[in-house]
Write a protein that binds this DNA or RNA. Structure first.
Length: 491
RNA sequence: GGGCGCGUAGCUCAGGGGUAGAGCAACUGCCUUUUAAGCAGUGGGUCGGAGGUUCGAGCCCUCCCGCGCUCACCA
C-alpha cells in the first residue's frame, strides 16, 4: 500500500470510501442546527442534526469519539459500531481530522460529564486531503497551533481554522464595521458608493496605483481617497453621507500600512470641525461600549480611556511643548529648515515647510499621544482641502485624532471657496514641480463643482484597520486584514 | 534599500563541529463512555538554496532566497 505521505494516505482513504459506496462531497446538508444550540438547549435524549469539521479523533476499536466544530462552537460526537451499523462504521474508520461531516443522533452526557451527540446517521460531506494544522486543546488551554506568520497570512484559512484568537479578531472587525454603520444610519447619514477608479487621483497626498482602460484608451488611478467625489455629492444636495470602503496607496508596507486599506469617510453639511470632533468622540466611545462592553482599551500595555471629551491641542502648541521650537507658518520655510537641522531630522527629498512640520509631528509628537487626543489647527500648507481659520489664514480648521500613538483619522471644515481651492491646488502644483510626488493635483472638474456652491460642511476620514488594531490590541495591521499584501509566492 | 533576527518531519519546537531528535499528527495491532484517551510497534528529513573552511558542517564563513521586527519611505 502506498502510504509514504499524508496526502497519499488520504487519497487512499477517499478511494476506499468511494469504492464502498460512501457518498463524499455532498451537495448540501439541510436541516442542521448549530452546535451552540445543541449545547445551550441540551436535553438528554434530544434528537439533533449537526454538521462541522472534525478537529480531534479518539478511536476505541468499535467506537470513536470525535470533536466537531462549526461556526458557533465545538461539540463531542460519539460513533458506535452497534448504533450506526457495521457498514457505516467501516466508513467511520476512514475519517481524518479535517473532514467535514454531517451527523444526526441523540444528545447524552458521558460518564465524564461531557455533553455529547451519539450518532445514528453519519455522512462524510467533504473529505479533506490535507491535514489541517490544528493543535490540541482542552477547555481554555491550547498546546500548539499554526504559528508561522507567513503561512498565517498567505493561507489565512489555516490561521482561522487553527487560531481562536484570529477568529476573534475578524469577528470583532465585522462587529466594529456593523456598529459604525448603525451609528451613522441612526444619525441620518446615508451610505454612498463613489468610483474606485479615478481619472485624477485626489483627496489625499499619496502616490496612486495606475491602471489602463482599454476601451477608453486612458489611464485610470485606483483611488487614494473618495473625498472629492463625496464633496461633489454635497454640491448635489446630499447633506449627510458616508462611504466605507477601500483606498489604495502605492507606498511602503509596514506594521501600520497596507497598500489597500479600509477608510470611513463622512461629510456633514452645515457642520464644522468642532461638530465632527464631537461625532468622533461619540462614535468611537460608543463603538467601544457596544463592541467591547467597556469604554477603555489596552494597547501596547497602556490602558486608554476612550470616554469623551478627548484632549484638544493646537498642533503648533504640541510641537512647542515637545521640542521647544516654534514652527508657526509666519516664521517661514527657512526657520523651519533651521529647526529641522537643530532637531536632527532626516528628511528625504525637498525640505518644504509642510514636509518638515509633518516630520516633526510624526516623529516627536505623535508617539506621545497615547490617550485620545485631537491635534487641531494645522498649517494651511499641509491642508490643501481644509477651510482657513477666520482669525489666522495661515492655519486651517483641521484636526487629527490620535489614540495609542496611532493616527486614526483626519478631518476638517471643508474648504468650499472655489477660488481659494484653485489657489491651493496651484500651490500644490508648485511643490509637485519641486519634486514632491505626493503633492495634490489640480482637478478642474472638482473646482467646477465647487463653483456651483458646496454648503459649509465638516468632513472626516477614519482608518478602520487602525481602529480594529486598537480594539483588538494588535500591533500589526496584517493581523487585522484577512489577506494582507505580501510578495507573490514563489513556485 | 540599511540594521537586527529567524528558516530543522505535516504542525509546534529542541539540537550550536563527530550516527538528525521530541511532542502532536500519520501508519499497523489491541481497545464500545474517551477527552492533550491509553498500550505496543512502524514510517517520515536534500536541516531554505548555492558555494567555501574542515578529516568531518543543521552547527563556522560568503553569497542568494523567503519571512518577521526596525530604520528609511509612507498621513
Amino acid at each position: 500500500m502506498e502510504t509514504d505521505n499524508l496526502y497519499q494516505q488520504r487519497i487512499e482513504k477517499l478511494k476506499r470510501l468511494q469504492e464502498s459506496g460512501a457518498r463524499v462531497y455532498e451537495r448540501s446538508f439541510p436541516g442542521r442546527s448549530l452546535v451552540r444550540d445543541a449545547i445551550d438547549q441540551f436535553a438528554e435524549g434530544r434528537e439533533m442534526c449537526l454538521a462541522g469539521r472534525l478537529i480531534s479523533l479518539r478511536g476505541h476499536g468499535k467506537s470513536v469519539f470525535a470533536d466537531m466544530r462549526d461556526v458557533s462552537g465545538k461539540i463531542q460526537i460519539y460513533l458506535r459500531a452497534d448504533t450506526i451499523g457495521k457498514d457505516v462504521f467501516e466508513h467511520v474508520k476512514q475519517i481524518d481530522i479535517g473532514d467535514i461531516v454531517g451527523v444526526r443522533g441523540t444528545l447524552f452526557t458521558t460518564r465524564m460529564g461531557e455533553k455529547t451527540l451519539e450518532v445514528k446517521e453519519f455522512t462524510i460531506l467533504v473529505k479533506a486531503l490535507r491535514e489541517p494544522p490544528l493543535g490540541k486543546s482542552k477547555e481554555d488551554q491550547h498546546w500548539y497551533s499554526l504559528a508561522d506568520v507567513e503561512t498565517r497570512y498567505r493561507q489565512r484559512y489555516l490561521d482561522l481554522m487553527s487560531n481562536e484568537e484570529s477568529r476573534r479578531v475578524f469577528l470583532l472587525r465585522s462587529r466594529i464595521i456593523r456598529c459604525i454603520r448603525a451609528f451613522l444610519d441612526a444619525r441620518g447619514f446615508i451610505e454612498v458608493e463613489t468610483p474606485m477608479m479615478h481619472p485624477i487621483p485626489g483627496g489625499a497626498t499619496a502616490r496612486p496605483f495606475v491602471t489602463h482602460h482599454r476601451a477608453l484608451d486612458t489611464d485610470l488611478y485606483l483611488r487614494i481617497a473618495p473625498e472629492l467625489y463625496l464633496k461633489r455629492l454635497l454640491v448635489g444636495g446630499m447633506e449627510k453621507i458616508y462611504e466605507l470602503n477601500r483606498n489604495f496607496r502605492n507606498e511602503g508596507i509596514s506594521t501600520r500600512h497596507n497598500p489597500e486599506f479600509t477608510m470611513l469617510e463622512l461629510y456633514e453639511a452645515f457642520a464644522d470641525y468642532r461638530g465632527i470632533m464631537q461625532l468622533v468622540e461619540e462614535m468611537i466611545s460608543t463603538l467601544a461600549r457596544e463592541v467591547l462592553g467597556a469604554e477603555s482599551i489596552v494597547f501596547k500595555g497602556h490602558t486608554i480611556s476612550l470616554a469623551p471629551p478627548w484632549e484638544r491641542i493646537p498642533l503648533l502648541d504640541a510641537v512647542r511643548k515637545q521640542t521647544g521650537e516654534d514652527l508657526s507658518p509666519e516664521r517661514g520655510e527657512k526657520s523651519a529648515v533651521a529647526i529641522a537641522e537643530r532637531l536632527k531630522l532626516q528628511i528625504e527629498g525637498p525640505k518644504t515647510y509642510p514636509k518638515i512640520v509633518d516630520e516633526v509631528v510624526k516623529s516627536l509628537v505623535v508617539p506621545r499621544l497615547v490617550q485620545p487626543t485631537f491635534l487641531i489647527d494645522y498649517p494651511v500648507a499641509l491642508s490643501p482641502l481644509a477651510k482657513k481659520k477666520p482669525d489666522n489664514p495661515l492655519l486651517t480648521e483641521r484636526f487629527q485624532p490620535f489614540i495609542g500613538g496611532l493616527e486614526v483619522g483626519n478631518a476638517f471644515s471643508e474648504l468650499c471657496d472655489p477660488l481659494d481651492q484653485r489657489e491651493r491646488f496651484e500651490a500644490q502644483h508648485v511643490d509637485r514641480e519641486r519634486g514632491d510626488e505626493e503633492a495634490q493635483r489640480m482637478d478642474e472638474d472638482f473646482i467646477r463643482a465647487l463653483e456651483y456652491g458646496m454648503p459649509p460642511a465638516g468632513g472626516l476620514g477614519i482608518g478602520i484597520d487602525r481602529l480594529v488594531m486598537l480594539f483588538s490590541g494588535k500591533e500589526s495591521i496584517r493581523d487585522v486584514i484577512l489577506f494582507p499584501q505580501l510578495k507573490p509566492e514563489e513556485k
